Amino acid sequence: MMMGQADFLEDLLRKLPGPDFEAADAVMRRQAQLTKPPGSLGLLEEGVEWLARWQRRDMPRLDQVDVLVFAGNHGVTAQGVSPYPASVTEQMVANFQANGAAVNQIARAVGASFSVVPLQLERPTADFTQAPAMTPLEFRAALRVGYEAVVPGTDLLCLGEMGIGNTTAAAALCLALFGGSAADWAGRGTGLDAAGVAHKADVVQRAVAFHAEARYEPWEIARRLGGRETAAILGAVLAARRHSIPVLLDGFVCSAAAAPLIKLLADGLDHTMIGHVSAEAGHRRLVAELHRPALLALDMRLGEASGAALAVSILRAAVACHSGMATFAEAQVDDRT
């Protein structure tokens, strides 16, 4: 890796803020006084504590929720891993911008802002079965785009992606980072049949073998096997940590994009939750590898931050319960003896 590149990557990891345990403790003290049995709201209670811990507030809020989608094209589509042409990526970006996609409707329904950031769609990454997907400079530029897209002061960030071929990239990232077989990680994507999935797994296996020298270097795995949009997601996750913004990751591709961070820092994804467990093959296994809770499981596999945006409704309900419920004393209800 070229000089300067390593320094830039190390700077991204340096002095990342940790959680605010005092804010989390304040949440738990209030939870103990609310008119319900302890722990009876399950993951809603955990979600409020998580928001407090990373927003650094005793009373978390969701006034500004941003849904951010990054879009990129992949040279590996030359291997026939998707039934759709790469032109669909640009067309879907236009659809996002015209408020015509599913995520636009979900974001509106949950009171979140939405934006999409295309990354050089006219110039796909290299076919990573034959070369690294990105040069060091291209990788750094994509990371920076994601990093700079995050607005400080945001209360919650939902991340997602769009890019024909990116489930192949995600499967390759997962295989390189966590092992197993390519068949564990390669799924239907945008609608492959069984033969197509088998071919996709073979492409993933060949790609990871081609880049075997980088297998224990998470930054290099992200550069060689990812895409511009997955690198941007990784940059956005790091920026959110820097600015004390909790993050909801979307499905398989988004989770895989963030996954190198857990190999770089043991607590690197503690400020994230996963919006939903995708129906895409491999995502449930990836969720287990990331050790992060997932809020929903609705058999979705659309991508484009749709599951993360939908999960905002769960966290809004959690915050409403936490802030609005009466305590035992206020409601004059007998607490446990």
Rank of each mutant, 00 (worst) to 15 (best):
Q130F: 06
A109H: 10
G146K: 04
F96Q: 04
E122K: 05
L156E: 01
M162G: 15
F128V: 11
S113I: 07
A112K: 05
P152S: 05
A133K: 14
M134N: 14
I164Y: 09
Q120K: 04
F96N: 07
G100E: 00
G153Q: 05
T135V: 13
A126D: 09
N104L: 08
A98D: 00
T154D: 14
T167Q: 13
A112V: 07
A149P: 10
E161C: 09
R123V: 03
G100K: 06
I106L: 06
L157M: 07
V150M: 09
T125I: 07
V145Y: 09
R144F: 12
R144Y: 09
L121S: 00
V103P: 01
V117P: 01
P152H: 11
Q105M: 04
L119E: 05
A98P: 04
A94H: 14
V145L: 10
E161D: 15
L121H: 01
I106E: 02
R144G: 08
V150I: 14
L121A: 04
E138R: 09
T129K: 04
A102L: 09
E161Q: 14
A131E: 04
P118R: 06
T135W: 15
C158T: 05
N95Q: 12
I106C: 02
F128N: 12
E122Q: 06
P136G: 07
A112T: 10
Y147I: 11
I106T: 04
R140H: 08
S113L: 02
Q97F: 01
D127M: 08
A133I: 14
Q105K: 00
L119C: 06
V103L: 03
A109E: 11
A149M: 08
F96I: 02
T125H: 08
V110R: 00
A101C: 01
F139N: 05
I164L: 12
Y147L: 11
